[in-house]
Design a binder for these strands. Sequence first.
DNA 1: CGAATCGTTGAACTGTTTCAACGCTAGTGG
DNA 2: CCACTAGCGTTGAAACAGTTCAACGATTCG
Lengths: 195, 195
Amino acid sequence: MLFHEGLPADHLHVICTGRVKVTASSSNGRLFLLRVAGPGDILGLAALDEHTLHRVSAETLSSCTIKSIPRADFIRVMKTNPELSLITALALSREYQSAFLSARRLALHTSAAGKLASTLLDWARADDGSDCPSPTNLPISFLMQLSQEDLGSMAGLSRETVSRLLTRFRREGLVDQSDDRMTLNNPGRLEARYR
Amino acid sequence: MLFHEGLPADHLHVICTGRVKVTASSSNGRLFLLRVAGPGDILGLAALDEHTLHRVSAETLSSCTIKSIPRADFIRVMKTNPELSLITALALSREYQSAFLSARRLALHTSAAGKLASTLLDWARADDGSDCPSPTNLPISFLMQLSQEDLGSMAGLSRETVSRLLTRFRREGLVDQSDDRMTLNNPGRLEARYR
DNA sequence: CGAATCGTTGAACTGTTTCAACGCTAGTGG
DNA sequence: CCACTAGCGTTGAAACAGTTCAACGATTCG
Protein backbone atom coordinates (compact mmCIF):
# COMPACT_ATOMS: atom_id res chain seq x y z
CA MET A 1 0.00 0.00 0.00
CA LEU A 2 1.64 3.20 -1.20
CA PHE A 3 -0.86 5.54 0.35
CA HIS A 4 -4.46 5.54 1.49
CA GLU A 5 -7.34 7.90 0.85
CA GLY A 6 -8.01 10.32 3.64
CA LEU A 7 -4.39 10.46 4.74
CA PRO A 8 -2.26 13.60 4.30
CA ALA A 9 -0.55 13.75 0.91
CA ASP A 10 3.07 14.80 1.21
CA HIS A 11 4.94 12.49 -1.15
CA LEU A 12 4.83 11.93 -4.87
CA HIS A 13 5.49 8.44 -6.17
CA VAL A 14 7.13 7.73 -9.50
CA ILE A 15 6.55 4.22 -10.79
CA CYS A 16 9.69 2.77 -12.36
CA THR A 17 8.57 -0.83 -12.81
CA GLY A 18 5.43 -2.79 -11.94
CA ARG A 19 1.80 -1.83 -11.72
CA VAL A 20 -0.27 -0.08 -9.08
CA LYS A 21 -4.01 -0.22 -8.44
CA VAL A 22 -5.60 3.16 -7.77
CA THR A 23 -8.85 2.79 -5.86
CA ALA A 24 -11.51 4.76 -4.05
CA SER A 25 -13.85 3.37 -1.44
CA SER A 26 -17.18 4.32 0.05
CA SER A 27 -18.23 4.21 3.66
CA ASN A 28 -20.49 1.24 2.97
CA GLY A 29 -17.51 -0.92 2.07
CA ARG A 30 -17.76 -0.72 -1.70
CA LEU A 31 -14.59 -0.43 -3.73
CA PHE A 32 -13.99 1.36 -7.01
CA LEU A 33 -10.96 0.58 -9.14
CA LEU A 34 -10.19 3.82 -10.92
CA ARG A 35 -7.12 2.78 -12.88
CA VAL A 36 -4.02 0.67 -12.96
CA ALA A 37 -0.94 2.83 -13.24
CA GLY A 38 2.30 1.63 -14.79
CA PRO A 39 5.90 2.69 -15.37
CA GLY A 40 6.24 6.40 -15.97
CA ASP A 41 3.11 7.28 -14.07
CA ILE A 42 3.30 9.62 -11.11
CA LEU A 43 0.98 8.93 -8.23
CA GLY A 44 -0.05 11.18 -5.40
CA LEU A 45 -0.20 14.32 -7.51
CA ALA A 46 -2.56 15.67 -4.86
CA ALA A 47 0.60 16.26 -2.84
CA LEU A 48 1.53 19.13 -5.15
CA ASP A 49 -0.84 21.26 -3.10
CA GLU A 50 0.07 21.61 0.53
CA HIS A 51 -2.22 20.36 3.26
CA THR A 52 -4.32 18.15 1.03
CA LEU A 53 -5.57 14.66 1.69
CA HIS A 54 -5.31 11.75 -0.69
CA ARG A 55 -8.63 11.17 -2.42
CA VAL A 56 -7.61 7.71 -3.59
CA SER A 57 -5.60 4.76 -2.36
CA ALA A 58 -2.68 3.19 -4.21
CA GLU A 59 -1.75 -0.45 -3.82
CA THR A 60 0.97 -2.36 -5.65
CA LEU A 61 -0.36 -5.06 -7.93
CA SER A 62 2.85 -6.89 -8.68
CA SER A 63 6.31 -6.31 -7.28
CA CYS A 64 7.24 -2.73 -8.03
CA THR A 65 10.11 -0.30 -8.04
CA ILE A 66 8.88 3.06 -6.93
CA LYS A 67 10.63 6.31 -6.06
CA SER A 68 8.82 8.25 -3.38
CA ILE A 69 9.74 11.90 -3.28
CA PRO A 70 8.79 14.47 -0.62
CA ARG A 71 6.76 17.36 -1.93
CA ALA A 72 9.40 19.97 -1.17
CA ASP A 73 12.07 18.08 -3.10
CA PHE A 74 9.81 17.50 -6.07
CA ILE A 75 8.84 21.14 -6.32
CA ARG A 76 12.45 22.27 -5.96
CA VAL A 77 13.50 20.14 -8.92
CA MET A 78 10.48 21.31 -10.88
CA LYS A 79 11.56 24.93 -10.48
CA THR A 80 15.07 24.36 -11.74
CA ASN A 81 14.13 21.78 -14.33
CA PRO A 82 11.19 22.84 -16.50
CA GLU A 83 11.15 19.43 -18.13
CA LEU A 84 9.76 17.93 -14.95
CA SER A 85 6.82 20.32 -15.15
CA LEU A 86 6.03 18.98 -18.57
CA ILE A 87 6.28 15.38 -17.39
CA THR A 88 4.05 16.20 -14.45
CA ALA A 89 1.49 17.81 -16.72
CA LEU A 90 1.48 14.70 -18.87
CA ALA A 91 0.98 12.52 -15.80
CA LEU A 92 -1.95 14.65 -14.71
CA SER A 93 -3.35 14.45 -18.21
CA ARG A 94 -3.17 10.65 -18.15
CA GLU A 95 -4.87 10.65 -14.79
CA TYR A 96 -7.65 12.82 -16.19
CA GLN A 97 -7.98 10.53 -19.17
CA SER A 98 -8.55 7.46 -17.05
CA ALA A 99 -11.02 9.21 -14.77
CA PHE A 100 -12.87 10.47 -17.81
CA LEU A 101 -13.03 7.05 -19.40
CA SER A 102 -14.28 5.55 -16.15
CA ALA A 103 -17.03 8.11 -15.80
CA ARG A 104 -17.96 7.80 -19.43
CA ARG A 105 -18.32 4.07 -19.42
CA LEU A 106 -20.27 4.06 -16.18
CA ALA A 107 -22.68 6.73 -17.32
CA LEU A 108 -23.24 5.93 -20.97
CA HIS A 109 -24.01 2.25 -20.67
CA THR A 110 -27.29 1.04 -19.26
CA SER A 111 -26.60 -2.66 -19.58
CA ALA A 112 -24.03 -4.58 -17.59
CA ALA A 113 -22.74 -6.12 -20.80
CA GLY A 114 -22.05 -2.68 -22.22
CA LYS A 115 -20.17 -1.62 -19.12
CA LEU A 116 -18.03 -4.71 -19.10
CA ALA A 117 -17.34 -4.61 -22.83
CA SER A 118 -16.27 -1.00 -22.63
CA THR A 119 -14.10 -1.76 -19.60
CA LEU A 120 -12.33 -4.53 -21.47
CA LEU A 121 -11.84 -2.36 -24.54
CA ASP A 122 -10.44 0.55 -22.54
CA TRP A 123 -8.14 -1.82 -20.70
CA ALA A 124 -6.94 -3.47 -23.89
CA ARG A 125 -6.22 -0.15 -25.54
CA ALA A 126 -4.33 1.17 -22.54
CA ASP A 127 -2.37 -2.05 -22.19
CA ASP A 128 -1.76 -2.30 -25.89
CA GLY A 129 0.02 1.01 -25.71
CA SER A 130 -0.89 1.85 -29.28
CA ASP A 131 -4.01 3.55 -28.07
CA CYS A 132 -5.92 3.71 -31.28
CA PRO A 133 -9.39 4.92 -30.34
CA SER A 134 -10.97 3.41 -33.42
CA PRO A 135 -12.41 -0.05 -32.92
CA THR A 136 -10.48 -2.58 -34.93
CA ASN A 137 -11.63 -5.94 -36.14
CA LEU A 138 -8.19 -7.33 -35.41
CA PRO A 139 -7.81 -9.41 -32.23
CA ILE A 140 -6.16 -7.77 -29.25
CA SER A 141 -4.40 -9.94 -26.73
CA PHE A 142 -3.13 -8.82 -23.36
CA LEU A 143 -2.26 -9.91 -19.85
CA MET A 144 -5.31 -9.78 -17.64
CA GLN A 145 -3.78 -9.15 -14.26
CA LEU A 146 -7.16 -8.38 -12.79
CA SER A 147 -9.52 -10.70 -10.99
CA GLN A 148 -13.16 -10.71 -11.97
CA GLU A 149 -13.82 -8.82 -8.78
CA ASP A 150 -11.39 -6.13 -9.92
CA LEU A 151 -13.10 -5.94 -13.28
CA GLY A 152 -16.41 -5.59 -11.49
CA SER A 153 -15.19 -2.71 -9.40
CA MET A 154 -14.01 -0.97 -12.57
CA ALA A 155 -17.31 -1.48 -14.32
CA GLY A 156 -19.60 -0.95 -11.35
CA LEU A 157 -20.81 -4.54 -11.43
CA SER A 158 -20.95 -7.39 -8.97
CA ARG A 159 -18.46 -10.24 -9.19
CA GLU A 160 -21.16 -12.72 -10.21
CA THR A 161 -22.42 -10.57 -13.06
CA VAL A 162 -18.90 -10.30 -14.45
CA SER A 163 -18.54 -14.07 -14.36
CA ARG A 164 -21.82 -14.64 -16.16
CA LEU A 165 -21.00 -12.05 -18.80
CA LEU A 166 -17.52 -13.39 -19.47
CA THR A 167 -18.83 -16.88 -20.07
CA ARG A 168 -21.39 -15.33 -22.40
CA PHE A 169 -18.73 -13.39 -24.29
CA ARG A 170 -16.71 -16.59 -24.52
CA ARG A 171 -19.64 -18.58 -25.86
CA GLU A 172 -20.24 -15.90 -28.46
CA GLY A 173 -16.63 -16.13 -29.53
CA LEU A 174 -15.98 -12.51 -28.64
CA VAL A 175 -13.25 -13.24 -26.12
CA ASP A 176 -10.85 -16.04 -25.33
CA GLN A 177 -9.19 -16.68 -22.01
CA SER A 178 -6.25 -18.90 -21.28
CA ASP A 179 -4.46 -18.75 -17.97
CA ASP A 180 -4.01 -15.04 -17.27
CA ARG A 181 -4.12 -14.01 -20.89
CA MET A 182 -7.22 -12.53 -22.50
CA THR A 183 -7.95 -12.02 -26.16
CA LEU A 184 -10.63 -9.82 -27.66
CA ASN A 185 -11.25 -11.61 -30.92
CA ASN A 186 -13.17 -8.83 -32.55
CA PRO A 187 -13.07 -5.53 -30.64
CA GLY A 188 -15.25 -3.80 -33.17
CA ARG A 189 -18.02 -6.35 -32.88
CA LEU A 190 -17.74 -6.40 -29.11
CA GLU A 191 -18.23 -2.66 -29.02
CA ALA A 192 -21.03 -2.65 -31.57
CA ARG A 193 -22.98 -5.49 -30.00
CA TYR A 194 -22.86 -4.15 -26.47
CA ARG A 195 -22.83 -0.42 -26.73
CA MET B 1 -22.22 25.00 -28.97
CA LEU B 2 -18.56 25.79 -28.40
CA PHE B 3 -17.22 22.55 -29.83
CA HIS B 4 -18.34 19.02 -30.40
CA GLU B 5 -16.76 15.66 -29.63
CA GLY B 6 -15.03 14.02 -32.54
CA LEU B 7 -14.13 17.33 -34.17
CA PRO B 8 -10.51 18.51 -34.41
CA ALA B 9 -9.41 20.48 -31.36
CA ASP B 10 -7.51 23.60 -32.32
CA HIS B 11 -8.85 26.30 -30.03
CA LEU B 12 -8.86 26.78 -26.28
CA HIS B 13 -11.81 28.55 -24.71
CA VAL B 14 -11.56 30.67 -21.60
CA ILE B 15 -14.86 31.26 -19.85
CA CYS B 16 -15.17 34.83 -18.60
CA THR B 17 -18.85 34.83 -17.60
CA GLY B 18 -21.67 32.32 -17.76
CA ARG B 19 -21.72 28.54 -17.54
CA VAL B 20 -21.00 25.79 -20.00
CA LYS B 21 -22.22 22.20 -20.06
CA VAL B 22 -19.53 19.65 -20.86
CA THR B 23 -21.03 16.45 -22.22
CA ALA B 24 -20.13 13.15 -23.83
CA SER B 25 -22.47 11.03 -25.89
CA SER B 26 -22.68 7.44 -26.97
CA SER B 27 -23.60 6.06 -30.34
CA ASN B 28 -26.93 4.81 -29.00
CA GLY B 29 -28.06 8.37 -28.32
CA ARG B 30 -27.38 8.50 -24.61
CA LEU B 31 -25.94 11.66 -23.11
CA PHE B 32 -23.60 12.09 -20.18
CA LEU B 33 -23.22 15.42 -18.43
CA LEU B 34 -19.65 15.43 -17.16
CA ARG B 35 -19.54 18.88 -15.58
CA VAL B 36 -20.71 22.43 -15.73
CA ALA B 37 -17.80 24.79 -16.16
CA GLY B 38 -17.86 28.40 -15.00
CA PRO B 39 -15.81 31.61 -15.08
CA GLY B 40 -12.09 30.93 -14.97
CA ASP B 41 -12.36 27.49 -16.46
CA ILE B 42 -10.52 26.67 -19.66
CA LEU B 43 -12.22 24.32 -22.07
CA GLY B 44 -10.79 22.40 -24.95
CA LEU B 45 -7.52 21.59 -23.21
CA ALA B 46 -7.25 18.67 -25.60
CA ALA B 47 -6.16 21.30 -28.14
CA LEU B 48 -2.83 21.63 -26.32
CA ASP B 49 -1.74 18.54 -28.22
CA GLU B 50 -1.69 18.91 -31.97
CA HIS B 51 -3.89 16.76 -34.16
CA THR B 52 -6.22 15.64 -31.40
CA LEU B 53 -9.98 15.37 -31.48
CA HIS B 54 -12.34 16.68 -28.84
CA ARG B 55 -13.51 13.88 -26.58
CA VAL B 56 -16.36 15.97 -25.19
CA SER B 57 -18.81 18.58 -26.36
CA ALA B 58 -19.25 22.01 -24.80
CA GLU B 59 -22.51 23.88 -24.90
CA THR B 60 -23.34 27.22 -23.31
CA LEU B 61 -25.93 26.96 -20.55
CA SER B 62 -26.73 30.63 -20.11
CA SER B 63 -25.47 33.61 -22.05
CA CYS B 64 -21.71 33.56 -21.85
CA THR B 65 -18.63 35.61 -22.55
CA ILE B 66 -15.92 33.37 -23.84
CA LYS B 67 -12.51 34.02 -25.33
CA SER B 68 -11.55 31.45 -27.93
CA ILE B 69 -7.83 31.30 -28.59
CA PRO B 70 -6.04 29.36 -31.34
CA ARG B 71 -3.61 26.76 -30.07
CA ALA B 72 -0.57 28.46 -31.52
CA ASP B 73 -1.38 31.77 -29.81
CA PHE B 74 -2.09 30.10 -26.50
CA ILE B 75 1.17 28.19 -26.52
CA ARG B 76 3.14 31.26 -27.55
CA VAL B 77 1.82 33.21 -24.57
CA MET B 78 2.44 30.22 -22.31
CA LYS B 79 6.11 30.19 -23.27
CA THR B 80 6.69 33.84 -22.50
CA ASN B 81 4.38 33.95 -19.51
CA PRO B 82 4.93 31.09 -17.06
CA GLU B 83 1.93 32.20 -15.06
CA LEU B 84 -0.35 30.93 -17.80
CA SER B 85 1.19 27.48 -17.44
CA LEU B 86 0.22 27.49 -13.81
CA ILE B 87 -3.33 28.60 -14.61
CA THR B 88 -3.58 25.91 -17.24
CA ALA B 89 -2.37 23.28 -14.81
CA LEU B 90 -5.03 24.39 -12.35
CA ALA B 91 -7.69 24.17 -15.04
CA LEU B 92 -6.59 20.65 -15.90
CA SER B 93 -6.62 19.78 -12.23
CA ARG B 94 -10.22 21.00 -11.89
CA GLU B 95 -11.16 19.00 -14.93
CA TYR B 96 -9.63 15.91 -13.38
CA GLN B 97 -11.44 16.56 -10.15
CA SER B 98 -14.84 16.67 -11.80
CA ALA B 99 -14.18 13.54 -13.87
CA PHE B 100 -13.01 11.77 -10.76
CA LEU B 101 -16.07 12.78 -8.77
CA SER B 102 -18.31 11.64 -11.62
CA ALA B 103 -16.67 8.26 -11.84
CA ARG B 104 -16.66 7.88 -8.09
CA ARG B 105 -20.33 8.59 -7.64
CA LEU B 106 -21.34 6.37 -10.53
CA ALA B 107 -19.26 3.44 -9.35
CA LEU B 108 -19.64 3.54 -5.60
CA HIS B 109 -23.39 3.83 -5.37
CA THR B 110 -25.64 0.89 -6.12
CA SER B 111 -28.93 2.63 -5.49
CA ALA B 112 -30.38 5.39 -7.63
CA ALA B 113 -31.03 7.41 -4.49
CA GLY B 114 -27.36 7.24 -3.59
CA LYS B 115 -26.28 8.39 -7.03
CA LEU B 116 -28.66 11.33 -7.02
CA ALA B 117 -27.83 12.35 -3.46
CA SER B 118 -24.14 12.31 -4.23
CA THR B 119 -24.72 14.27 -7.43
CA LEU B 120 -26.61 16.95 -5.54
CA LEU B 121 -23.95 17.11 -2.84
CA ASP B 122 -21.11 17.41 -5.35
CA TRP B 123 -23.01 20.07 -7.22
CA ALA B 124 -23.78 22.02 -4.07
CA ARG B 125 -20.17 21.94 -2.92
CA ALA B 126 -18.86 23.03 -6.29
CA ASP B 127 -21.45 25.77 -6.58
CA ASP B 128 -20.99 26.83 -3.00
CA GLY B 129 -17.36 27.57 -3.81
CA SER B 130 -16.27 26.84 -0.25
CA ASP B 131 -15.69 23.25 -1.19
CA CYS B 132 -15.56 21.74 2.25
CA PRO B 133 -15.47 17.99 1.69
CA SER B 134 -16.90 17.24 5.11
CA PRO B 135 -20.67 16.81 5.22
CA THR B 136 -22.25 19.60 7.21
CA ASN B 137 -25.56 19.59 8.94
CA LEU B 138 -26.07 23.19 7.88
CA PRO B 139 -28.42 23.79 4.95
CA ILE B 140 -26.86 24.58 1.59
CA SER B 141 -28.83 26.60 -0.89
CA PHE B 142 -27.94 27.12 -4.51
CA LEU B 143 -29.24 27.88 -7.98
CA MET B 144 -30.29 24.71 -9.71
CA GLN B 145 -29.77 25.63 -13.33
CA LEU B 146 -30.17 22.04 -14.38
CA SER B 147 -33.27 20.26 -15.55
CA GLN B 148 -34.11 16.89 -14.06
CA GLU B 149 -32.96 15.38 -17.30
CA ASP B 150 -29.58 17.05 -16.84
CA LEU B 151 -29.37 15.74 -13.31
CA GLY B 152 -30.20 12.31 -14.62
CA SER B 153 -27.43 12.40 -17.16
CA MET B 154 -24.99 13.38 -14.43
CA ALA B 155 -26.09 10.57 -12.17
CA GLY B 156 -26.64 7.92 -14.82
CA LEU B 157 -30.39 7.82 -14.17
CA SER B 158 -33.49 8.26 -16.24
CA ARG B 159 -35.50 11.47 -16.09
CA GLU B 160 -38.43 9.68 -14.41
CA THR B 161 -36.31 8.19 -11.66
CA VAL B 162 -34.91 11.62 -10.83
CA SER B 163 -38.41 13.02 -10.55
CA ARG B 164 -39.55 10.25 -8.25
CA LEU B 165 -36.49 10.57 -6.06
CA LEU B 166 -36.72 14.33 -5.75
CA THR B 167 -40.32 14.16 -4.57
CA ARG B 168 -39.19 11.51 -2.11
CA PHE B 169 -36.34 13.68 -0.84
CA ARG B 170 -38.80 16.54 -0.54
CA ARG B 171 -41.28 14.47 1.42
CA GLU B 172 -38.50 13.39 3.76
CA GLY B 173 -37.59 17.01 4.32
CA LEU B 174 -34.10 16.53 2.95
CA VAL B 175 -34.44 19.06 0.16
CA ASP B 176 -36.57 22.08 -0.63
CA GLN B 177 -37.23 23.45 -4.08
CA SER B 178 -38.65 26.82 -4.95
CA ASP B 179 -38.50 28.14 -8.47
CA ASP B 180 -34.99 27.41 -9.65
CA ARG B 181 -33.51 27.39 -6.20
CA MET B 182 -32.69 24.20 -4.35
CA THR B 183 -31.85 23.76 -0.69
CA LEU B 184 -30.25 20.73 0.90
CA ASN B 185 -31.64 21.02 4.40
CA ASN B 186 -29.27 18.56 5.97
CA PRO B 187 -26.39 17.51 3.70
CA GLY B 188 -24.94 15.21 6.32
CA ARG B 189 -28.15 13.30 6.72
CA LEU B 190 -28.70 13.16 2.97
CA GLU B 191 -25.28 11.61 2.55
CA ALA B 192 -25.65 9.22 5.46
CA ARG B 193 -29.11 8.01 4.52
CA TYR B 194 -28.34 7.35 0.88
CA ARG B 195 -24.74 6.36 0.74
C1' DC C 1 -53.17 28.48 -31.02
C1' DG C 2 -50.02 24.51 -31.65
C1' DA C 3 -45.47 22.71 -30.58
C1' DA C 4 -42.03 21.84 -27.44
C1' DT C 5 -40.03 21.30 -23.00
C1' DC C 6 -40.45 20.02 -18.32
C1' DG C 7 -42.21 17.62 -14.38
C1' DT C 8 -45.26 14.02 -12.59
C1' DT C 9 -47.27 9.51 -11.89
C1' DG C 10 -48.82 4.63 -12.98
C1' DA C 11 -47.90 -0.09 -14.46
C1' DA C 12 -45.35 -3.71 -16.49
C1' DC C 13 -41.15 -5.56 -17.72
C1' DT C 14 -36.46 -6.79 -17.50
C1' DG C 15 -32.06 -7.19 -15.76
C1' DT C 16 -28.93 -7.04 -11.95
C1' DT C 17 -28.14 -7.80 -7.33
C1' DT C 18 -28.14 -10.65 -3.60
C1' DC C 19 -28.00 -14.98 -1.22
C1' DA C 20 -26.47 -19.51 -1.39
C1' DA C 21 -23.99 -23.41 -2.59
C1' DC C 22 -20.22 -25.81 -4.96
C1' DG C 23 -15.54 -27.00 -7.09
C1' DC C 24 -10.94 -25.69 -7.67
C1' DT C 25 -6.31 -24.03 -6.50
C1' DA C 26 -2.78 -22.32 -3.70
C1' DG C 27 -0.94 -21.31 0.54
C1' DT C 28 -0.44 -22.25 5.65
C1' DG C 29 0.46 -24.48 9.72
C1' DG C 30 0.05 -28.42 12.53
C1' DC D 1 2.09 -34.69 4.45
C1' DC D 2 -2.40 -33.52 5.11
C1' DA D 3 -6.17 -30.91 6.78
C1' DC D 4 -7.69 -26.22 6.65
C1' DT D 5 -8.47 -21.84 5.16
C1' DA D 6 -8.77 -18.21 1.80
C1' DG D 7 -9.40 -16.54 -2.72
C1' DC D 8 -11.33 -17.14 -7.19
C1' DG D 9 -14.66 -18.59 -10.55
C1' DT D 10 -19.17 -20.65 -11.51
C1' DT D 11 -24.13 -21.35 -11.40
C1' DG D 12 -29.03 -21.31 -9.61
C1' DA D 13 -33.07 -19.01 -7.77
C1' DA D 14 -35.52 -15.27 -5.81
C1' DA D 15 -36.07 -10.55 -4.82
C1' DC D 16 -35.92 -6.03 -6.04
C1' DA D 17 -35.12 -1.86 -8.21
C1' DG D 18 -34.85 1.04 -12.17
C1' DT D 19 -36.05 1.43 -16.91
C1' DT D 20 -39.28 1.84 -20.26
C1' DC D 21 -43.73 2.93 -22.14
C1' DA D 22 -47.59 5.73 -21.68
C1' DA D 23 -50.48 9.34 -20.42
C1' DC D 24 -51.40 13.85 -18.32
C1' DG D 25 -50.97 18.89 -16.76
C1' DA D 26 -48.28 23.05 -16.80
C1' DT D 27 -45.47 26.34 -18.92
C1' DT D 28 -43.11 28.72 -22.46
C1' DC D 29 -42.28 30.17 -27.00
C1' DG D 30 -42.92 31.16 -31.72
